[in-house]
């Protein structure tokens, strides 16, 4: 059995976002790049499943659509424990473009389980996983917060509007995962970092894909006015303001 984890290279979540060229391009100056947090959790879970499988899961592969600039992030995934990596050599254009590139990889080498993070911390599309599932004609499950293999059957928990569901799924399938899928992301150990240098990272050419959407310009939100502060003796004043002026309660 083989698992593929799709990873995205995103700005660190504490980054102050700035744009340049008349607000048309992200200013990458000074940005620290990381594995997208949900993809990192997905990778951690894939490795846990492999370790617990007693050899049934042979490999965990990571795939990324990106330029050579995303290789440090891919190497980190290898250091964490992925067996090998594929980089599709292209600047990601939009979700459909990325999904179409990944679809090509899955079609070439069939994976039993494909894991994709809920959304990426940059463009927040929440789209690549579902698009990929459609393009490769896989069963897909979204908002997955736990994934177990019990007696050869896949059991997942997923969040629904107002609760959770337990679902048994057939292989192959694609899971779009969120918080809970693994507790903490795994941190690479020194041995892993050494080994990552020699693990295979295959670079493949991108295929031509139609661009369906484009970011034409960016805007920053309006800055908030200053906060009107009260001390704890004036709670009542605040509550009456919320009632009378803001009409919120």
């Amino acid at each position: 059995m083989k698992i593929l984890v799709c990873i995205s290279d995103v700005p660190d979540t504490t980054t102050k976002i700035k744009f340049k060229d008349n607000n048309t391009t992200l200013d990458v100056n000074g940005i620290q790049w990381i594995i997208n947090p949900w993809d990192e959790l997905a990778l951690t879970r894939a490795l846990e499943l492999k370790e617990a499988s007693g050899g049934i899961i042979q490999s965990v592969t990571v795939a990324n659509v990106g330029t050579v600039a995303s290789e440090p992030t891919i190497r980190k995934a290898l250091a964490v424990g992925a067996d090998n990596a594929i980089r599709i050599d292209a600047q990601p254009k939009d979700a459909y473009y990325v999904a179409a590139q990944l679809a090509n990889i899955v079609k070439a080498e069939s994976y039993d389980i494909v894991l994709v993070g809920r959304d990426s911390a940059d463009y927040n599309g929440s789209a690549v996983g579902g698009m990929l599932a459609e393009l490769i004609d896989y069963n897909s499950l979204s908002s997955v917060s736990s994934l177990n293999i019990e007696n050869g059957k896949i059991r997942i928990n997923r969040e629904i509007d107002g609760g959770t569901e337990t679902i048994e799924a057939e292989l192959p399938f694609l899971a779009i995962v969120q918080k809970g899928i693994s507790k903490e992301p795994r941190i690479p150990a020194m041995r892993g970092i050494m080994m990552a240098r020699t693990k295979p990272l295959n670079v493949v050419q991108a295929v031509a894909v139609e661009i369906l959407t484009e970011d034409v310009s960016f805007e920053m939100p309006q800055p908030k006015g200053s906060c009107k502060k009260f001390d704890s003796e004036n709670v009542k004043t605040l509550v009456s303001l919320l009632h009378n002026e803001a009409k919120l309660i």
């Binding site: 459909y96 809920r118 789209a127 579902g130 698009m131 459609e134 509007d161 369906l212 959407t213």
Partner: peptide, 24 residues
């Protein structure tokens, strides 16, 4: 809706119809 089910379905619909998707 940009909620659990909208996020689950819209990408599949988008890829199936080759329709550009904007979420949120």
């Amino acid at each position: 809706a940009n909620n659990i089910s909208g996020k689950a379905l819209s990408p599949r619909v988008s890829a199936s119809l080759k329709a550009g998707l904007v979420t949120g």
